[in-house]
Each structure stands twice: as C-alpha cells, then as structure tokens.
Nucleic acid binder design. Structure first.
Length: 217
DNA sequence: ACCCAGGGTCATA
DNA sequence: TATGACCATGGG
C-alpha cells in the first residue's frame, strides 16, 4: 500500500476509535498562541493552571503581557514549569505581535511559508511551536510533528527519508490533502492515541491500529 | 524514588 | 551539524 493510502487509513481508524478531539483547547487565537509556548515539554493540566492564573490576573492579552514585569509574569505561569524561560519566551512573542499592533487579523494576508520563517526567528518559537500556532491559532494548513508522531509512525513502519522535523513534516504534507480540518484532527488524534495506555505495555502505539490490542476498538 | 509531559536555546566539538 | 546541559512543576 502506498504511503498516501496508509496515512489516510490510519487517520480514519483513529477518528473512528476516538472521535473528534476539538483542538486546540483555548477560547481565542491569542490564548492558543500563549498555550503553544506554555505547553513546551509540560503537561497540559499544568498549562491550564498557568493560563487560569493569567486570566484571573487580567493579563491574557498582548498589551497586558507587554506591560507586566517579567518576574511577575514568571510567577503567574509558575505551574507550567520552566517559568523563567517561558516568561522570556512569552515576552518575545508579544513583542513580535506588537509589530502588528497586537492585531492578528493583519497576518491574514501573509504567505504561510514567510510567516513561518518570521515566527521561527522569535525567541522560544521552534518548528513544532510555530506549526502549532499556524495551524491551531491562525488556521493555516500545516502539519504539526511531535514526539508522539515520530514514535507511532516509526513503529508502524512509516518514516521519512530524512529523520528530521522537516522530513517528517513533508512526509505528511506531501501525502495528505492540504486541509486545515484534517491536519487539525490528525495531530490531535495522534496525541490522544499516544497518551492512551492499554493493559500490556505502558505505551502501546498500536491501539486502535493493531488487532487484538486491549484498548483497541 | 523515578519517569515523563502537546520543546527550545545555547555552548561546545 | 550534532550532541548534551539546562530550563522546573506536577501527576502517575
């Protein structure tokens, strides 16, 4: 079976097993962008606490985060871990937003590839974070690669020629329709599946994809 | 007590 | 360009 067919059938299987995931959890595109930084190597539950703190303090806006002292910001996002490092990253992100008058709609006319390059230049924004922002905050058709993606598809025997972020990204984007909805749901389903635990192993990357797996359908 | 969570930066070779 | 140290809380 060709790669294209496999990716499609895996998507279908995951969707049937878990249903739509309704990503990204976040009320506004700005909140999604902030969450993309805060969730770096952190459990989402801790990120929710941090975002809750920001909301409660009335600081969940670009202007507020531009004004707040970095030390105060670090305290608010404490639960998400790496709070000093992430406070600096959030500052860099809202400083970048300031170049557009804190107005995300001004990004609408920008070419996706150029926007991606520009965001990659912002401190704290790496390849996974930028694709998360592009897809889940700005509705651009890009595929997000993470550790779950590499682990799952490696075990299923699907790998890019070059084992790099860009290699993995191209593997999916070249073999799937360029559809925001599909890219959104596929990544969310991969993460959902990656967190799943069947009785046999702590991580069974075959659940719903391999017959006989305990948590399979 | 250990392991890892929806990564990225920076210094070093 | 390719590793490794570092950033740090909280749940299993």
């Amino acid at each position: 079976m060709r790669t294209r067919e496999k990716l499609k059938s895996i998507y279908t299987a995951l969707l049937e097993c878990y249903g739509p995931q309704y990503w990204w959890p976040g009320e506004t595109p700005f909140e999604v962008m902030i969450g993309a930084i805060l969730t770096q190597s952190a459990a989402w539950g801790n990120v929710e606490k941090a975002i809750g703190n920001l909301k409660a303090a009335g600081k969940l806006s670009a202007a507020s985060l531009q004004d707040i002292p970095i030390g105060d910001l670090a305290k608010l996002i404490y639960p998400s871990g790496y709070y000093n490092a992430k406070a600096k990253k959030l500052k860099a992100l809202v400083e970048w937003l300031g170049r557009y008058g804190d107005d995300l709609s001004r990004l609408d006319t920008r070419d996706t590839a150029e926007l991606r390059q520009e965001l990659l230049g912002v401190h704290g924004v790496g390849p996974e974070t930028v694709d998360s922002i592009l897809l889940y905050a700005l509705n651009r058709p890009v595929f997000v690669i993470d550790a779950y993606t590499r682990r799952l598809f490696s075990r299923l025997g699907i790998k890019p020629e070059k084992d790099t972020y860009e290699g993995w990204r191209a593997l999916f984007m070249d073999n799937l329709p360029s559809d925001v909805g599909v890219f959104n749901e596929y990544h969310a389903l991969i993460v959902r599946q990656g967190k799943e635990k069947c009785g046999k192993q702590p991580r069974c990357d075959g659940c719903c994809l391999v017959e006989g797996c305990a948590s399979g359908k």
